[in-house]
Design a protein around this nucleic acid. Sequence first.
DNA 1: GTCTATACGCCGATAGAC
DNA 2: GTCTATCGGCGTATAGAC
Lengths: 208, 208
Amino acid sequence: MKVKTRDRILSASLALFNELGEPNVTTLLISDELDISPGNLYYHFRSKGDIVGELFGHYREAMDDLLAIPDDVEVSLDQLGFFLHLLFETLERYRFLYHDLVNILTRYPELKTPFRRILKRKEAGFHTLCRSLSRQNMMSLDDPGVEALCQQLTLTVCYWESYDSLRDLGNRNGVDPGRGVYQVLYLLMPHLPGPVRDELELIARDYQ
Amino acid sequence: MKVKTRDRILSASLALFNELGEPNVTTLLISDELDISPGNLYYHFRSKGDIVGELFGHYREAMDDLLAIPDDVEVSLDQLGFFLHLLFETLERYRFLYHDLVNILTRYPELKTPFRRILKRKEAGFHTLCRSLSRQNMMSLDDPGVEALCQQLTLTVCYWESYDSLRDLGNRNGVDPGRGVYQVLYLLMPHLPGPVRDELELIARDYQ
DNA sequence: GTCTATACGCCGATAGAC
DNA sequence: GTCTATCGGCGTATAGAC
């Protein structure tokens, strides 16, 4: 069965937003890309903001799914690496949001609050994971240390892709989410006891 | 003596860019803010891009000054804190650049290469500082560790303000660069030997 | 140096036929 | 559902008087 035009618009928009930046993508460019008329696009969406809003909704759902971490989870290092991999992959899929964040949030102010909420949820997720590691005696860190670490982890997952693509400017053929995972694992490493640290170092090597 | 109109345009533009985001600031808004005509603005600058370019030049100069770190420097922890403070202050002064980076770099592509060069210079600066600390036995870290740390430091100084203002959305009455310094010092802490670490913890407390 | 007035282009969005 | 045609608004930039 044929893919609905509405969905084609969404996926083409996402691709263009990520490639060129949302403010640089006109509704005409989207319809050209799909070989449909601009009028047709406005039959399926009332405004460009609706497209952005719907894509943002997908981002939000994906994040909510990923960050629904039970409080009593007993996470292994392998699972942690896998989790981070999924997290970076999802963030990369919607990277356009972070590329021009201030502009997007001022033009679509209704996204501000949900955006902030997702950020808080990321932080909370990392706190849960740190508590899990502590409970298993795989991490030792005082409260201010955990707080600083969780903020650092959140900052890094949010902006790693921006930083990494800025570093490479031009020679980008798709970003490797693995480098982000590697970077985050190195943030964790100093706080693990010796043997566990060696284990993590082996895992990190795979992601580099 | 009266301040030249040209300079008033530059400083008003900088303030507005930081407050509202560069793409949201029209040439009309800038001239309104200064109670001059839009035509007058275009007498002093050939285009809006020229204003952005000149402000970027100031940013570049400030960074180049800060990052001219001699290879054989023997940096103390106090000096390190002070350096970071200056660094964050400067980055905050030109924070609009990072708020909509992709948009700005696509509309003013001539900034791409210099921007990337400054990023590399930050990384190199942190490498120099890490070597200095190592030489003084105030830091012990293997090569991949230093590499990951320096990237982490660069990422953090560049994007801390964006992250921090996103976290607080709304309740912003000017950002406190101190929180950034605190965060970076906590990145360094785990890699310092015990006594030095305690000293750094005291310094960090002041910045929180 | 500074003003007023305006041209030009682009983009988001709508009207109405098919 | 899809098209063509077009409006209205806005932002950059220029022309030309003072």
